[in-house]
Design a protein around this nucleic acid. Structure first.
Lengths: 200, 200
DNA sequence: CAGATCATGTAACCTGTTACATGATTTC
DNA sequence: GAAATCATGTAACAGGTTACATGATCTG
């Protein structure tokens, strides 16, 4: 499981609260690893029990106290062990592709709409990555100033950017091919395909 | 949730047992939607309670009885409703990218090994998709013979193939860039980076 | 005065994974 | 004789999502 190790990685740069961690996740690795706030708190609890982190309570007068988590030597050791171990399989799940797979009973116009909607979503995510995430990484880089870190952060960001660029290109190609999609045979309860010539 | 709808989609082509469904998933949509055997049985149970499928028990002398699941009119209606609705967000999680993000404390040689290992994994998955999945889809196409279905199945397969092709290209580019990775500053407990020039 | 931000979490639920249980037949 | 295939599942656990709970300050 990578969540606890990603947390170790971030805490190794700087001690943080659970709240800070959530923001950090969303600003840096969101496009390949997400974490819910509740998940982060639950995991920090376990990590503290395992001795990977220790808590420093920082009192504040006006706001609720902060619990600042620090990585421990044991935690740092675990981070290094994990880094050197082979990575687990990646997870990809696309409801959109499942719909494309079973889309034959839809009419051509509906299928086209499906693709256009998907392209819009991709463009929005692409823009967010280029603007928000790039901005946040630049800020982080300016603060920490370690060129080796920056280069690797930038590499994972560019993976995302290149991915969306590729997928948008693929969408265009696919939509051209859709124009030559064979018409469907009649199915009970679906008059949608009549416009495409029917089966006859 | 797409699992129950993917099941509806498959049962709409032909009635099947839970065991058959698992094989069908693995041979066709595995690269964008996986399902465990136990998950399929659990979901079929719920779908039967909801009236989306009905069970036909087929007795066999030599082997255990088969439970063949048929889609019901209610199920077919639900399938159509789902198909026309907008798709939920896709899910992507890559432990490998998390490791790249935090890899700066590793030495250059270890980082290179990480990339080479990843490329090997990608090549293996790519080969499986081209051979096994393409073979299974061709068989399915030969059996059902609906060109509209085939064209869409093929499209989702080619998405996978194009994806791996893109990712392997990206890996090559990234490895070239890695050759110019800035050296790391010394960190406590890690002598690994000394070979790269240290922080003078 | 409403909504965002800061800051903590818990509870319930759903999904996904792994292991276990059974037992016959077919293949190496 | 061992392992794979056919065929059904259950149980326990891990991981991820959503909703709820609290309460201050800051911004529009």
């Amino acid at each position: 499981m990578a969540l606890e190790h990603a947390i170790l990685g971030f805490l190794d740069y700087a001690p943080m609260s659970g709240y800070d961690l959530k923001k950090t996740f969303d600003e840096s690795v969101r496009h390949f690893w997400t974490a819910q706030q509740s998940q982060i708190y639950r995991t920090l609890k376990r990590m503290q029990q395992d001795g990977w982190v220790r808590i420093e309570v920082v009192k504040q007068d006006d706001r609720p106290d902060r619990k600042v988590y620090h990585i421990t030597p044991t935690g740092r050791q675990e981070l290094e062990r994990w880094l050197a171990a082979p990575a687990g399989p990646e997870l990809f799940r696309s409801e959109w592709l499942v719909k494309v797979f079973f889309a034959s009973r839809l009419g051509d116009s509906e299928i086209h709409a499906m693709f256009r909607e998907r392209a819009d979503t991709l463009r929005a995510k692409f823009a967010h990555l280029q603007d928000a995430t790039q901005g946040a990484l630049d800020e982080g880089a300016a603060k920490c100033g370690e060129p080796r870190d920056c280069a690797l952060w930038q590499l994972t960001l560019e993976y995302g950017i290149a991915y969306y660029r590729w997928e948008l290109e693929w969408m265009e190609q696919a939509m051209e091919r859709l124009a030559r999609l064979p018409p469907g045979a009649d199915r009970a309860g679906n008059g949608e395909n009549a416009e495409n010539g029917g089966n006859g």
